[in-house]
């Protein structure tokens, strides 16, 4: 008993909506059950068994939305074996609960705190250098990378089950994350320099001072250990706010 390729593609498509029904009790449980349902329908033609299978995927689940694709693929790998009677019915759920934490950590570390900030910085630099098309292109590249990785993880999880862990280890995402963070910081530095230079040319000393202060604020926040998203948003909002305020103040004086 195997899941047809068409159905696998449908499951992958549905996995893009993993967080659409996020809730406090089960977090991504409804999204996961919705995504895997076509595969379960293919594996369990009898309504009773399908209902039973769907019910076990309504338990708590929470992971990084991208790396969760690996778990979804691997869970189908185990469900196929359950359907063939080669594994106990508890295996898919055990697989999910074992991998959700570690894969969430990898996803947070690589996508949220490295890849996305890097492309965000690149978009900011591009917007300053060549204008808005740079932002569209950066978004397109980011999503190409993210969807390719996401689909690769899903396919690999489906093919290898537990073997996905060794494959993810070979990807060495934490190492790339470190490099991307350094590269992102470098691009941010370039952007700041460009802002300073342009601002000083157009609006004089004050805008330069504001940009410097915003950069110093960001650096201090980093020193304070702020690595999670809210801090990054606060810094961006503070920087934009300061720049707008300075522009207004400058314009009215």
């Amino acid at each position: 008993m195997t899941v047809p390729t068409r159905t696998l593609l449908r499951v992958f498509w549905r996995s893009l909506f993993l967080q659409a029904a996020w809730n406090r009790r089960g977090m991504q449980n409804l999204g996961f059950a919705y995504a895997i349902d076509p595969a379960l329908a293919a594996l369990y033609p009898e309504p009773e068994r399908r209902r039973e299978a769907l019910a076990r995927h309504l338990g708590f689940f929470n992971c990084h939305p991208y790396t969760a694709a690996a778990i979804l693929g691997g869970t189908i790998y185990h469900e196929e074996r359950v359907a063939r009677g080669e594994e106990p019915a508890g295996n898919p759920v055990l697989y999910k609960s074992t991998l959700q934490g570690p894969l969430a950590a990898i996803g947070d570390g690589f996508f949220w705190t490295a890849l996305r900030p890097f492309f965000g910085a690149l978009a900011a630099l591009g917007a300053l250098a060549v204008g808005w098309p740079a932002v569209v292109i950066t978004l397109a590249i980011y999503n190409l990378v993210h969807l390719a990785l996401r689909y690769g993880l899903f396919r690999d999880g489906y093919r290898k089950g537990d073997g996905i862990v060794a494959d993810v280890a070979r990807l060495a995402l934490p190492v790339f994350a470190d490099r991307l963070r350094v590269a992102g910081a470098f691009v941010c530095g370039l952007t700041a320099a460009l802002l300073l230079w342009r601002g000083a040319l157009q609006a004089g000393f004050l805008s330069g001072a504001v940009a410097l202060a915003a950069a110093a604020f960001g650096y201090l926040a980093l020193l304070g250990g702020a690595r999670l998203l809210p801090a990054a948003y606060v810094i961006v909002v503070a920087g934009v706010g300061a720049a707008l305020f300075a522009a207004r103040w400058h314009g009215s004086s």
Binding site: P102, A105, D108, G109, R227
Partner: peptide, 15 residues
């Protein structure tokens, strides 16, 4: 933590 080791711990508590 029911999820043991994950992003909240590695990205916020550990540093």
């Amino acid at each position: 933590d029911n999820r043991l080791l994950h992003g909240q711990i590695l990205e916020t508590w550990a540093p």
